[in-house]
Amino acid sequence: MHCDRCILEDESRAELPLDAFLSDFLACDACTEAAAGPLALRLALDRLRQSAHSLRRTRSLLRQREKDLEAALEATAQYEARIENMERVYKQSTRELEPHVAVVEKQAETIRALSAPILEVGEGVVAMPIIGALDGERAALVTEALLARIHAQPARWVILDLTGLDEVDDTTAVAFLRVCAALRLLGARVVLCGLRSRVAQELVRLGADLSALQMLPTLRAALARCR
C-alpha cells in the first residue's frame, strides 16, 4: 500500500512536533512500500517503530507519576482524619466490650475461689476437697489458700479430701508434699483421705515420703479421727 502522501516523504511534516509525527508514523503499520524496501530501511523503520512505542509508554508513565504525586498530597490530609476516627472507634468498641470483660473476670474469680474451698467441719478442724486435676498453678493456689487460712485462724487438723483428684504428676506431688510440711510447721496435723488407687500408685512411684501424714480411706473416717 502506498498512501497518497507518505508521511516520510511529506516535507511539511518536518515541522510537526515529534509526538505528533511518531503518532502518525505508528499508524503506518501496513505499509507495503516499506515492507518491500531494502533490509537497512526495514530495520531502521522497525527500530523507529519500537522507539516510538517506547517513547509513548514513557510519556504515559510520566503523566501517571504526575497524577500519583497529586494523589499523595491529597492523601496526607486524609490520613490525619482517619487516625482520629480510628482512635474514636477503638475507644467506643472497648467501652462496649468492657461489661463482657468484667463478667468474664468475675467468673474467673469465682472459679478460682471454688477450686480451693476451705470448709470448717469441726472445732479446730478444716477440710479442703480437691476435685479434678492438680496442676502447678492450682497446687500453688491450694497452698496459698491453706497457709493463709491456718495462719489467720489456727487449726489442729487439716483434712485434704482427695476423692475427686484425678491425677498428679511429679511437680504437683512435690508441691503437694511441701504444703503438708508447711502446714505441720504451722502446728496443724494433716490427714489425707479418699486417695484413689491411681494417685496412690503415682505417689509411690515418685517415692514420696508419706510417713508424716495420716492416711484414711474416707472423709467420714477422717472426720471421726479428728474429733
Binding site: L26, D29, R49, H53, R56, R57, S60, R63, Q64, K67
Partner: peptide, 23 residues
Amino acid sequence: TVSIVHTDALTAGREVAEELTFE
C-alpha cells in the same frame, strides 16, 4: 495488557489499540 494515560480520550483509545496490536 497496556495502559495509556493521556489528556485526550480519543487519542488514549487509539494508542491503546495500537499498543495492543504491537504487543
